[in-house]
Amino acid sequence: MTFGQVLMGILLPYTVLALFFVGMTRRILRWAREPQLLKWTLFPVPSSGRKILLTIYQILGLRPLFRYNRGLWLGAWLFHLSLWAILLWHFIRFAGLEASFWMTAEQWIDTVGKWVLLASILYLVIYRIAVGPMRAITGTVEYFNLAVMFALVITGLYLKGNVDPYETGIYLASLITFSPQPFPEDGLWMILHWLLALLLMAMLPYGKMSHLFSQFFLKLRIDWVDWKKKPYARAH
């Protein structure tokens, strides 16, 4: 293996994986373990069943945005949906899943998903620029995150058809099983796509993208803790 292959294929991905797992684990443990002393409940506190429903609605439908800002919701919902779909597409393709269900899903995502993702990213950028208050609250970080996503999709689009999925699949599997094979020699676009994916992964636990997990801890450990079921202060 050349130094470049070691760097791209072993050193960087394992560093990023370590950053991702250590960062995410630390954060999740912190969110789960931190003292829960501030009775900062937001009423109405939903019932247990409704909590589950609301959580599913939030994950699948981005409930508050759907309720109050359909314009932003459209872009944000399509973005999140297609992002998850594209991740699934990668999994199907590189794991070599061949059952008809998976093949149909792959084709659908390949035909529609990638363009939806690209369009929704552009939509979100335009929305943030065009709508006054959104422009005011959007900072470099938000544009940077969207730019990374955009570049990921563009490089991904180019790679489609220019990469041997079998070889890439073997490489990715070797990474996961800690027996790394040489990084596929698929040129500059592959390197860019790979670097952007690693960058995204490295950023996720440390920035605002960690809302992926934090929102549930905030709901379950702050907003939905019904202190009212206890008297304000118990008599002793």
Binding site: W31, L65, Y68, M134, I137, T138, G139, S210, F217, L218
Partner: peptide, 30 residues
């Protein structure tokens, strides 16, 4: 009292602007 919520609030706002539509100062005139 504050470590968990405060740090998380400071770290995870995605700037979606939904709060602007809820706030009585900004919901009609932002």
């Amino acid at each position: 009292l504050y470590r968990f919520p405060l740090r998380t609030y400071l770290e995870t706002c995605a700037k979606c602007g939904n709060c602007i539509l809820q706030c009585h100062l900004t919901c009609d005139d932002a």
